[in-house]
Design a protein around this nucleic acid. Sequence first.
DNA 1: CTATATACGTAGCCTGGCTACATGTAGCCA
DNA 2: TGGCTACATGTAGCCAGGCTACGTATATAG
Lengths: 105, 105
Amino acid sequence: MKADTLRGHLDALLLAVLDGRKLHGYAIIEALQLRSDGALDLPTGTVYPALRRLERAGWLASEWDVVSGRKRRTYRLTRSGEQALAAERTEWREFTTVIGGVLGA
Amino acid sequence: MKADTLRGHLDALLLAVLDGRKLHGYAIIEALQLRSDGALDLPTGTVYPALRRLERAGWLASEWDVVSGRKRRTYRLTRSGEQALAAERTEWREFTTVIGGVLGA
DNA sequence: CTATATACGTAGCCTGGCTACATGTAGCCA
DNA sequence: TGGCTACATGTAGCCAGGCTACGTATATAG
C-alpha cells in the first residue's frame, strides 16, 4: 500500500481493533496484520505514540499487567472511545463515498 | 471531512477528473466540488502545485489557451497518465478493502 | 469605479506517520 | 553458556505533502 494513505485513518484502526476486547500494543500490531491479511504492518514508532495520544484524549484507558515476567500495557476502549469509534466509522463511510464517487465512474 | 484524510489520494482525484476530458485548473476545482456534492473544496494552493507535479511526472500535458481574454492552462491525461489512473483506481480498491476490513465487522 | 468571479501561481508552515534508535525479558538451541 | 529470536515498550527527530496566506491579473455586473 502506498505510503501516506494511512494519514488520518490510524485512530480509526486502533479504536476498531480494540472494539470489544483488551489488547496490549504489541498484540494490537499483530491483530492489525491478521485482520488485514498482512497488508498492515505498522511500526512500533507509529503505534505506541498513537496509543498514548488516544489515551490522553480519553478514548482509551490502560493498565499494566505482567505475563510470564513481561510487562504489558493493556488498553481498552472507554465509553467516549466507543463513541469516537462510531464517529470514525461514519467518517470513513463518508470519505469512501466522496473519493470513490470521484474515482468511480 | 477530517483534515489529512486526503493525504495520498490527491493524485488519483486529479487524474480521475481529467479522465476523458480536458480541463483547466480552476475548472478542475469546480468539477471536484460538483462530483463530490460540495464535499471537496480544494484550495488553489493544493491543486496548482499538484498539477504541475503530475505534469513533470509525465502523467499530464498542458497547453495555454485564451478564453474571453483570460489565459488558461488546460490539462489532459497523457497515455501514461491513463495507466497511472488505472493503477490509482486499483490501489484505491485495495486501500478501502484493507481499512474497511478492519473497521468493518 | 468598485466588487465579485474567474484564473494562475509560490513561499513557507504544520502535522502526523515513519525511521532509527535505546532498553529489557523469556525461551530455544547448539 | 552464549547467542539468537521473539516478545514488549518507548522516544527523538526526519520528512512529505496538503494547506494557509499571500501576490498578480482580467472580465463583468451593479
